[in-house]
Design a protein around this nucleic acid. Sequence first.
RNA 1: CGGGGCGUAGCGCAGUCUGGUAGCGCGCCUGCUUUGGGAGCAGGAUGUCGGAGGUUCGAAUCCUCUCGCCCCGACCA
Length: 592
Amino acid sequence: MNCNRNDFLDKFVEHMLNIKTQGESMRFTKMFIPTIKDAPKDAEVISHQMMIRAGMIRKVASGIYNFLPLGLRVLKKVENIVREEMNRAGAQEVLMPMVVPSELWQESKRWDVYGKELLRLKDRHDRDFCLGPTHEEVITDMVRRDVRSYRQLPLNLYQIQTKFRDEIRPRFGLMRGREFIMKDAYSFHASEECAEREYKNMYETYLRIFERCGLRFKAVEADTGQIGGSFSHEFMVLAETGEDAIASCNKCKYAANVEKAETKIQGQGASVKGQEKTLTKVSTPNMKSVEEVSGFLKVSPQALIKTLIYDSDKGGFAVLLRGDYEINETKLKKHADAEWVRLADDETVKKITNAPSGFAGPVGLKCGIIADYSIQNVVNGVTGANEKDAHFVNVNIDRDFKADKFADLRNVVQGDDCPRCDGKLEIMRGIEVGHIFKLGTKYSETMNAVFLDENGKEKPFIMGCYGIGIGRTAAASIEQNHDKDGIIWPMPLAPFHVHIVPVNVNDKKVMDAAENIYKDLEGAGIEILVDDRDERAGIKFKDADLIGIPIRLTIGSKNLENNMVEMKLRKEANALLVNRAEIVEKIKNFKS
RNA sequence: CGGGGCGUAGCGCAGUCUGGUAGCGCGCCUGCUUUGGGAGCAGGAUGUCGGAGGUUCGAAUCCUCUCGCCCCGACCA
């Protein structure tokens, strides 16, 4: 109304000062932190619920999220650690487009292979594009255009960028989204040795990155999956809610994703001959599963030879497995030498075994049989009789049937022997936050990305690729570090280092003290969130616990009279009183 | 993709079976009191009942279609 020029200027200056506080430290009243008591019912896992409740993220569509200021700060913390360590390791940051022309994907043959996860779109000229789920094609193209000589190698280029994978079933919030931020690095080499050296370099770099993030994690051997290549490691954050099972030796350093984990080959030729009983068919009405059959016949599941009928690009075949073990399709695919394998549908089972599914067995079966090593020990076993409601008992290998091939086809279980030493394997769960691959020449060959070596000979680049899920790392940290009240951030990922809670903002002494401490800490390079809201103490404490900043300073009038301030670590139950003069020093110690 | 479930106020839910003026708790706004662990009292605002079509005098409720979201499933041998 009577807003004259000077008022306007004052307001402008005030506004600019407020903006300035949006740097390292913040006032709660100025920051957009919409915390909520009840998480929406669609949030299933802890990290998802807590990020929503703490006002860090909001869902926009299935598997697609907004990052609010607090969430973004955490994301940036992870990014910066990754960036610093990648740079330190000699990699260089680039930025590639999110929208990629189909030509590149057609060239690598992945346009047809990658499937529905690849979100395809057309531009106004009806040309095909996709949203990049990963960038091997783009980087290979980028490098082949301008790198001609071995003298320009090696190169390690990375970006931190948004990826899109149209997941079948996005879930668990940031843990399995469709749109997500990833650091992906690609290295190019003139020789195998150089590529392997870089793989080790990245392995070490990843160890440093996740250590700096304050995570408990494990590097495990992994299957190379869809990206392809010769060998790879995954970096798993250990958490009950992890989507992956990993096997880890209790004695040596061996650790592997269960998809890939091996055990000592048992029982080759160890079957006890001479006690073989007569093969007998028994009636097992409606007994299909291992539990049903073993319960009905009163034998242990170990005595069963589970017969699974598989379909593949090479046709149908049978897989034999001891009753108490699980099939590992990754291993099966490899040993069956197939492009794809799939459990056969009822119709195919019927065609191959002449019986409804649930009664398949190797005796008299007229298809290829591939058997897990585990059945070599089974004497007088139980199998389906390839006939409805019937099983054979006293089935013996060699006498009653033969397998075309023995192989390691099962998932390892708790207590299996370590393949490397005399230790035992433990099974634990993990969240995959990083994955490194030695790619070899898979992409450089198909995309004709070549350089001239010192002999003037044309050779394809030898490549490696190295990914880290940025958002997933933040989510994994929460899965690993939380209690019933909220998040417990490790210092390096925390959105702020210190959370100042003035108990009563209307008490001038309290607020003055809070302001002074705020300024002192800020001057010492510490990031602070000060809860200057005119709210009851209880509400502020609840929000502080939920948001999970590692150090909380509670400023109340009574303690202030003794020149003391309460300091509480989020991860500990009890608070301690600190003299005002010592606060900065104390906190500096905790921070490092 | 198959199976199941859910869409009602910002969030959590009731109401749907059996059609008859849209509710509860939390949150939000105003005022007073309160003020170290999600306060009390009083007053107040807020809904295309996911969307479209149909049945009916009348639809959140019944029917058809559609969209969105969530969960389970590739271990039945």
